[in-house]
Design a protein around this nucleic acid. Structure first.
Lengths: 192, 192
DNA sequence: AGGATGAATTGACATTTGTCAAGAGATATT
DNA sequence: AATATCTCTTGACAAATGTCAATTCATCCT
């Protein structure tokens, strides 16, 4: 399991032996059942986790309304970035929406790695660059004007998620009501 | 002017003499008049620029509709990230909406700096982390449900921009029509 | 000063989307 | 098998927002 994390980091920039051994000693495997919370509102997000198996959903509450901000599947590294970045309590929840296994590194360990292994900053930089890139892609979705455009965008960019996630959560991710999403879908599939 | 860029990078992580001297030789000052384009759709964004003075607007065309994606003021580093990151032509425009002076570094020079001065990866990492953090803040705005909530969020987070930018552009940034923004404003200021 | 241009506001109306409610279908539990 | 629970769909109506058009206002230009 930890090897998946080594592999992932190695693909960003090669890790030497000492560094990868150090990471092996620091990484922790965590497993979560469907519905289990990985992070709660009000907590500091003090780790970054590679999703080895499963699927997570990030969300927050706006006047009690559950609003999905992100889905993270196998091969992606999950954090609640605002909280992770400033190391203060955030307002995001992260839950497993499938049985999920993750390989995690603590924030403080990562910071120490940056100091002890300066070349690890390359990995950190590349991972952040990529996460930023993905975030910008997601944001384009929210700037689409109509419900149909948003649905099509989601279908094109996350074809597999449609099957794995309930419509309720996809709807809040797309910024529309469950009913609107349902109608868009039925209309869309009629014309195909 | 270039010293502002040195200062900015130095605030992310201290630059040694050799590195800052190298950056001085690489940085270029660019000035733009109001309305001038800094980046065009279809171009590769091959530089990152600190806004020393002025204000820029990033936007793209969706079915011919001009949609504002970002404003960047003094002290912030501007790129069109998706294009910069993958070094392929993007669909963003960047224009100066005030007389603007920027201190720029080329993409290829930055990559070479990462190689020649490995500690520069710390600066790159921290800048990207911060840019990502800001992007996540912006995205929260787009998840607000009503026009009024979006307006309030913008007022709270960018109090100075309201005066510097035309409502037309703020409206597309907030994802609403100019008329709706105007109505929200007049209603909002009546109650204050 | 006068005229042109663009920014912002306002009104009337159309369209989209949300909300509430009911019901069908699937899955899990006992 | 029966019941409960959850997901998804559909209908009717309400609310929010967009669109089109007209008007005011400020600014720029000659």
């Amino acid at each position: 399991m930890v090897e998946k994390l080594i592999e992932k980091l190695n693909s960003l920039s090669p890790l030497n032996e000492a560094l990868s051994d150090k990471i092996r000693t620091l990484a922790k495997i965590n497993t979560f059942n469907t519905g289990e919370l990985i992070l709660r509102e009000g907590q500091v997000c003090n780790r970054a986790c590679l999703v080895v198996k499963g699927l997570t959903r990030s969300y927050y509450l706006n006047d009690g309304m559950d609003i999905t901000s992100r889905f993270m599947e196998e091969g992606f590294i999950v954090t609640s970035w605002p909280s992770y970045y400033i190391q203060k309590p955030g307002n995001e929840f992260i839950e497993a929406i499938e049985p999920t296994t993750m390989a995690c590194l603590n924030y403080s360990d990562i910071q120490q790695l940056y100091i002890d292994f300066p070349e690890f900053n390359i990995n950190g930089r590349r991972q952040t660059e990529y996460a930023f890139y993905l975030a910008e892609q997601r944001t384009l979705l929210l700037r689409k004007h109509t419900a149909e455009e948003k649905y099509k965008y989601f279908l094109n960019h996350h074809p597999t998620l449609m099957q794995r996630v309930s419509l309720k959560h996809i709807a809040t991710y797309l910024g529309m009501s469950e009913e609107t999403l349902s109608r868009v879908r039925s209309k869309f599939h009629k014309n195909n």
